[in-house]
Simulated scan of single mutants.
Amino acid sequence: MTDESALLREPWIDFGRQLEAGKFGIWVFLASETLFFGALLLTYTVCRIEHPDAFAAAGRETNVWYGTINTAVLLTSSLTMAVAAQAAKESARLRRVVLAGLMITAMLGLAFIVIKGFEYKEDLDKHLVPGAGFALPQPGAQLFYGFYWLVTGVHAIHLSIGIALVSRLIWVLYRRELPAKDNPEIEVTALYWHLVDIVWIFLYPLIYLPGRAS
């Protein structure tokens, strides 16, 4: 059995068409996710224009070190994911490189979640959750932290899904249930992972940098 026949799925009778359909499907999904996060970022922009001082004060309360470390972690995970995806395209002999890249990617994703957990605990201890007992006096600051909890929570969910997808790939490739060479699941998963990372690159300056330039 060839690698392509092992990867072929119903209703496709041609691997090339299956591959193109998979790419098209993930790009449609990524476009819908872009619209979703774009709407959140537009809402943030409007609120920040209306409450610039409150957003600056709230931004100074975020832990920029946690945010910076997590940014470095995600950027590194994008690199290892790209290495795995490229190795899968190059040669079947690079299967170990593919597995190593995927494992490091998953571990970095888990590291991001753990670091974010420590940051959330600090936020809770500082009473930075909108509602009764909120630590900051400015009404607009609650809008900032409402956005903060919403977008970082949604991002963490997306990242957790990505970790699960990468972990599944590691499992099936390790058991040799599917070949690594030209596996469309690797490319599709890589595109999803890169989207999650790109979203964080936009979120980082919006969350951690307001109020710190002055």
Score class of each variant (00 low, 15 high):
2 T>E: 04
3 D>M: 12
3 D>E: 10
3 D>G: 03
4 E>T: 03
5 S>V: 02
7 L>C: 01
10 E>N: 00
10 E>M: 00
12 W>G: 00
13 I>W: 06
14 D>C: 03
15 F>I: 01
15 F>K: 03
18 Q>T: 00
18 Q>R: 00
19 L>Q: 08
20 E>N: 08
22 G>W: 06
22 G>S: 04
23 K>W: 14
25 G>N: 04
27 W>G: 00
29 F>Q: 05
29 F>I: 02
29 F>R: 07
30 L>Q: 07
31 A>Y: 00
34 T>V: 08
37 F>S: 09
39 A>Q: 06
41 L>E: 05
41 L>V: 03
42 L>E: 05
42 L>S: 08
43 T>N: 10
44 Y>V: 04
48 R>L: 12
51 H>F: 15
51 H>C: 12
52 P>D: 07
53 D>E: 07
55 F>G: 09
57 A>H: 11
58 A>R: 05
58 A>L: 09
59 G>F: 06
64 V>P: 15
66 Y>F: 14
69 I>H: 05
71 T>V: 09
72 A>E: 04
74 L>H: 09
74 L>P: 13
74 L>S: 08
75 L>V: 05
76 T>M: 08
80 T>Y: 02
80 T>F: 03
82 A>V: 07
82 A>S: 08
83 V>D: 01
86 Q>W: 08
87 A>S: 04
88 A>D: 01
88 A>N: 01
89 K>C: 07
89 K>A: 02
90 E>M: 05
93 R>H: 08
95 R>D: 01
96 R>N: 01
97 V>F: 00
98 V>I: 00
100 A>Y: 00
103 M>G: 05
104 I>D: 00
105 T>E: 02
111 A>S: 12
112 F>Q: 10
113 I>N: 10
114 V>D: 06
115 I>P: 11
115 I>F: 10
116 K>I: 08
116 K>N: 13
117 G>V: 04
119 E>L: 14
122 E>C: 15
123 D>L: 13
124 L>E: 10
126 K>I: 10
127 H>E: 14
129 V>H: 13
129 V>Q: 10
132 A>V: 09
132 A>L: 12
133 G>Q: 15
141 A>H: 13
141 A>P: 14
144 F>G: 13
148 Y>C: 13
149 W>S: 13
150 L>P: 14
151 V>L: 13
155 H>Q: 12
155 H>S: 06
159 L>K: 10
160 S>Y: 15
162 G>I: 03
162 G>D: 05
163 I>Q: 08
164 A>H: 07
166 V>A: 04
169 L>P: 15
172 V>C: 04
172 V>E: 01
173 L>H: 02
174 Y>S: 07
176 R>T: 01
180 A>K: 07
186 I>W: 03
188 V>F: 02
195 L>Q: 09
197 D>G: 08
200 W>P: 14
200 W>S: 12
202 F>G: 15
204 Y>S: 07
208 Y>Q: 11
210 P>L: 08
213 A>P: 15
214 S>G: 11
